[in-house]
């Protein structure tokens, strides 16, 4: 059974309570129609349910989320996947700032562009490795403070004059990896990262995640992979290790 909720004019507390209660009663699939800025969708749900969102969801989509799959058939706003533990979010559009802040697991796939501070302080723990893939370009401070996880910026359909990411790319990064399709202007990088060639393991990882990404958006994997990738790695896992006098 699919539970359909017309969200027109509905306050977020009512909407989220309805979905949480239905999940508690065993509902596994939801379609939310006429969504228009309701916050915190997917928050507080610890089951592997599927929620299709028709309309633009509000800030903090999937905050603290642990399990669900969210399909957004529109653009999305700021702070998606904030401190998320597991699950998947697919956005058929562009998204705002501070995506995946402190994200520890799960997947965030964005078809279009992403704003400032994407993947900030993303981390990983054992088998929990978060993945963010953005199809378009990213804003400033992309991958800032990153401590783990995988961040991929594809820059599909961008013209040659548009940089793939803004300034301070990877500033303060001390873990994880960022894959970038095409070239990076080194002057935009933070001083804590360096550009490296991909090895075989990288190719395998990237292909695995991009295969899934392309399936969601109906993209041709070979075409996406046709342009060479580079990766950004932290220069040190302890960028601030020698800062102090004891």
């Amino acid at each position: 059974m699919v539970m359909t909720i017309d969200c027109k004019g509905m306050y977020y507390r009512k909407l989220n309570k309805m979905t949480q209660n239905a999940v508690a009663e065993g509902e596994t699939e939801f379609v939310l129609d006429n969504v228009n800025g309701q916050r915190y969708i997917g928050n507080g749900i610890n089951e592997k349910v599927k929620i299709t969102i028709n309309g633009v969801p509000g800030n903090d989509l999937a905050t603290f989320m642990n399990g669900p799959t969210l399909i957004v058939n529109a653009n999305a706003q700021d702070s998606i996947a904030n401190t998320m533990n597991s699950g998947k979010i697919v956005v058929h559009g562009s998204a705002g700032d501070v995506l995946g802040y402190g994200m520890r697991g799960g997947k965030l796939y964005i078809k279009g562009n992403v704003g400032y501070r994407t993947g900030i302080h993303m981390k990983e723990y054992k088998k929990q490795i978060p993945v963010i893939i953005a199809g378009g370009v990213a804003g400033d401070f992309c991958g800032e403070y990153m401590a783990g996880g995988i961040l991929v910026i594809l820059g599909l359909n961008k013209d040659d004059d548009t940089p793939i990411a803004g300034d301070y790319f990877g500033t303060g990064m001390h873990g994880g990896v960022i894959y970038v399709r095409g070239d990076i202007d080194e002057s935009t990088l933070g001083k804590e990262v360096s550009i490296q060639e991909l090895d075989k393991k990288d190719d395998k990882t990237l292909k695995k995640h991009l295969t899934e990404y392309c399936e969601h958006f109906g993209l041709d994997l070979d075409e996406v992979m046709s342009k060479p990738f580079v990766k950004l790695l932290p220069v040190s896992s302890r960028p601030y290790g020698n800062l102090y006098a004891y």
Binding site: R104, R117, K126, Y145, A147, G148, G175
Partner: peptide, 17 residues
């Protein structure tokens, strides 16, 4: 803390959200 063994745990000055 759910971070790898031996890595620095950095708490940034502001919350970035």
């Amino acid at each position: 803390r759910m971070i790898p063994v031996g890595t620095d745990a950095l708490s940034p000055a502001p919350h970035h959200d």
